[in-house]
Design a protein around this nucleic acid. Structure first.
Lengths: 351, 351
DNA sequence: TTGTAAGCGTTATCAT
DNA sequence: ATGATAACGCTTACAA
């Protein structure tokens, strides 16, 4: 335990503008003026003050400054994510950072390690006057406490919707993207299209399944429940499920992986099967390098970050319009795995 | 009479503890006690206050709180990096975050986009009372302004040394790592070992070259300047340089890539040449997946982050020992590209 | 157990 | 052009 509070100059810690004022023999207000570059200071006085500042190694305490400032602004925007290491996170952050910087904001990123309690704590910490606004990629925790506090910095959700909470958000078009993928397969004469995905309780999975349904319905193709495998949560499970779909009496001729794990499982199951088409939802690191290169429907993650930041900056600027939900279109990236045509397969015998 | 500036509740913005005190009909001190979980509050009073807090959506202004607190602490540690997107950054951040969290700190990451001015601004912003300490992965800019200010949060540099600045730092053993790699090749009977690297003005490149020299000297192998190619700054240049080394009258039988770019160039040049060994400095995404898998000497980037955080936390805790420079050993990861033995090659004729 | 007043480091108001 | 003083939202002495 140190014993600070002695007087004199800056014994207990950093020098304050009072120390500077004393050193320069002016008032604190004059120091403040110099600090803020106000014009109404005689050049000689200003230089004198600046010298004192340099001599003492003074640095302004921003927290104290913001406390009194009329137009409070930290020039900081926060981003809370589940995992800093995932490549998508970095890209989203870059998009948000870019837009923020164009408007004079720096981006602060914090990762919750996908821990709900930490996520909530991080959000609270950020909003308690530390940033002007916050972008959150929710990890599935209960964020309803946000609904209660009208005060605090504005929050925009990105990439995922916050559970049961009406709030500004920017997400990819899950349903449309899945529909696009399935239509692509249908156009290549596939009628037996398998769906592989994670737990249906995940909003994104449910939406992607909806897109699958819609595409089949629009093409008047019956949805065979035997071709649908939900609740897959690792690559191994996805591989088993995909292999099973290919072993059905009336097997799948194409597979749609609703997330990267499912897609990789599907690819493994279809390895060596030149007659099976595979399309995945979400681009991934090696998608273009595998054999065959993988056709995917991809979210534009950087655009997600950019758009979220734009929306957030508007809110920070005082935009009071009702809650906005922005949906960003996905892009189908044709590579090779999804271009295989059905028809010549051995599985279209009688009738 | 409460009603300070304007009456009613929270006209100018967020509610303050005065608004809460008025709402609960207690003093601000009592609200403060509840906020800080002090025991000496009657349960009924506490509940009353908590209700008022909930009703008003009050959230404590941490900046103001810290302003007065004796034991100032933001519970925040900052990390300034050049590029959020690079995989190394994420790993380093994760290491630092992990250690920080064990001690009750959250990690805030900001990226400068490798812009010197932004980097300096970020460092200033962070240290101006926003975090308790700061880890910086310097991008090569002039950080000497840090030497002047003894005040402000402590700073630890990670992965790279700050130019001409005596400061706490944690870096990988560049020279030792390179020596290790070259010794590994020497042990496999290589005597003509090419060195490929970036500009020698980079501290890390210079150090790795020193390790190369040391290994050769220790083995009493002459250093042939024709085998050294520095200043390579892209893969294409590295490929050309590596190809040239393999075409010398007395060609290289092994190549050491001092950074990932150089390593990839070396690999391309050696493609199909089963007699040429390649070792790279730094592990990379696909190193294990290429053909042949690439042997590397790798920094333990997560340990870099962890160690930097540990050192920083000690400084935050009041550790006043002299400047520390911690060097972390590298690890040689044998895969295949570096295991080829020299001797049987056609390039060892007379003497 | 609760309240009053001072003070943290800065900026804002209003003089001078 | 410069300064005295109140105020920002909160915590901490010190009472009561």
């Amino acid at each position: 335990m140190p014993a600070p509070t002695t007087n004199g100059v800056a014994v207990g810690g950093r020098p304050t503008i009072r120390d500077v004022a004393a050193e320069a023999a002016v008032s604190t207000k004059t120091v403040s003026r110099v600090l803020n570059g106000e014009p109404s200071v005689r050049p000689a006085t200003a230089r004198n003050v600046r010298d004192a500042i340099a001599r003492l190694g003074f640095e302004r305490n921003e927290a104290a400054a913001n406390l009194r400032r009329r137009r409070k602004s930290t020039s900081l925007v926060g981003l809370v994510v589940g995992d800093l290491g995932s490549p998508g996170t970095a890209v989203l952050a870059r998009g948000a950072e870019q837009v923020g910087r164009e408007h004079g904001y720096y981006l602060l990123v914090a990762s919750s390690g996908s821990d709900a309690a930490i996520e909530a704590e991080l959000i609270r910490t950020f909003r308690a006057g530390r940033v002007d606004g916050l972008i959150v990629v929710p990890t599935g925790s209960d964020l309803s406490f946000l609904a209660e506090s009208t005060a605090g910095a504005p929050v925009v959700f990105a990439d995922r919707l916050p559970g049961n909470l009406r709030a500004d958000s920017v997400v990819a078009a899950d349903a449309d993207g899945a529909r696009q993928a399935v239509e692509y397969l249908l156009a290549r004469h596939h009628r037996r299209i398998g769906f592989l995905g994670g737990p249906a309780s995940l909003f994104s999975v449910a939406q992607r399944y909806r897109g699958y349904e819609q595409a089949l319905a629009a093409a008047a193709v019956d949805l065979d429940p035997a071709l649908v495998r939900l609740g897959l949560d690792d690559t191994a499970g996805a591989l088993d499920a995909a292999a099973a779909l290919l072993r059905l009496p009336d097997p799948a001729t194409a597979l749609f992986g609703a997330d990267t794990g499912a897609t990789i499982g599907a690819l493994r199951a279809a390895a060596g099967r030149s007659d099976v088409a595979v399309i995945g939802f979400d681009d991934f690191q090696m998608a273009g390098l595998l054999d065959p290169p993988v056709t995917v429907v991809a979210r534009d993650v950087e655009a997600l970050g950019r758009t979220a930041a734009e929306l957030l900056l508007r809110r920070i600027g005082g935009d009071r319009r009702p809650v906005q939900r922005i949906t960003l279109d996905t892009v189908l990236i044709p590579r090779a795995s999804g271009e295989k045509t059905a028809g010549r397969s051995p599985a279209t015998p009688d009738q």
